[in-house]
Amino acid sequence: MLPASAPTAILADDEPHMRAMLREQLEALWPALRVVGEAEDGVAALALIESVRPDIAFLDIRMPGVTGLQVARAMTAPTRLVFVTAFDAHAIEAFEVHALDYLLKPVDPVRLARLLARLRALMMPLPAATPEPDLARLAQALARLEAMPVTPPPAVRLQWLQVPMGGQVRVVHIDDVAFFESDLKYTRVVAGEVDGIIRLSLKQLAEQLDPACFVQTHRGTVVNRRQIHAVHRHGEIMELELKAMSVRLKVSQPNHHLFRAM
């Protein structure tokens, strides 16, 4: 059991699989750190920071509703900030709100380990979290947040995946993926020598993929058009031959029209 004085953190990211991967990295690199909450949008992140008052907040920048930068400007808790984002265009703004660091997705474990070592060295006792949130302070923080202009984030397509394989994590660019296959509530990723499971359902994944490049062969499989070498037809049966792979993917009857022109 960890002592009550163990350092605490919250994770804020609208992508559940990114929160899961970061949580796993933190558990491996800093076992004493307690993740005491997670949020998937800016308003929830601010409320969590103000109520829990963690030592560290790992914030995505582009989240639904309000951004991580707006959360940083509205918060009153003495929480140290680390931004974790897929975009490098906000680094200056991040340090203007006194962020300790700015990590790019996919998070490099070596880079993260160095940051955590620095955090441990810098960690000073913070005011103890109160049993109940200070509702007046939270209301003031939310009021400041509501007064900020709300701009919906642009649609962002998935670019990189971190795929666990054995004792390591392989980083795969989305263009290199041959196909995705449903595996209960998780998804199998096949890309060249990489064949592993990610903690994301096929439905959640499909929402982040470019529909011009990724199409369904049937309910449980999504294929990358760039990786299709040939389409084979045998009567009512249609199969896709993929580049540099022996496997052939069957296409369900309702999806035949997607591949007839290939």
Rank of each mutant, 00 (worst) to 15 (best):
M1R: 09
P3T: 07
A4K: 08
S5L: 13
A6G: 01
A9Q: 08
I10M: 14
I10R: 13
L11P: 01
D13A: 09
D14K: 07
E15T: 09
H17L: 15
M18E: 09
L22Y: 12
E24I: 11
A28G: 04
A28Y: 13
A28E: 12
A32Y: 01
R34C: 05
E38K: 02
D41K: 15
V43N: 04
V43S: 14
L48G: 05
L48M: 08
I49V: 10
E50C: 10
S51V: 14
R53N: 10
R53S: 12
D55F: 10
I56N: 02
I56P: 00
T67A: 14
G68W: 02
Q70N: 13
A72E: 01
P78K: 05
P78G: 03
L81I: 11
V82D: 00
D88K: 04
E93S: 11
D101H: 12
Y102S: 07
L103D: 02
R111D: 10
L112K: 10
A113S: 05
R114I: 05
L115P: 00
L116E: 01
R118N: 03
L119E: 01
A121R: 13
L122E: 09
L126F: 06
A128M: 10
L135P: 02
R137W: 08
A139C: 02
A139H: 08
A139M: 14
Q140S: 10
A143G: 02
L145V: 11
E146S: 14
A147K: 14
M148C: 15
T151L: 10
P153W: 02
P154E: 12
A155R: 14
V171H: 11
H173P: 00
H173K: 12
I174K: 15
F179H: 09
V189A: 12
V194T: 15
D195M: 03
K203M: 12
P211T: 01
P211F: 07
A212Q: 15
H218S: 04
R219F: 13
N224A: 15
R225N: 07
R226E: 03
Q227F: 07
A230N: 08
V231L: 15
G235V: 02
E236Q: 08
E236R: 12
K243F: 07
K250W: 13
P254E: 04
R260H: 08
R260P: 00
R260W: 00
A261L: 09
M262H: 03
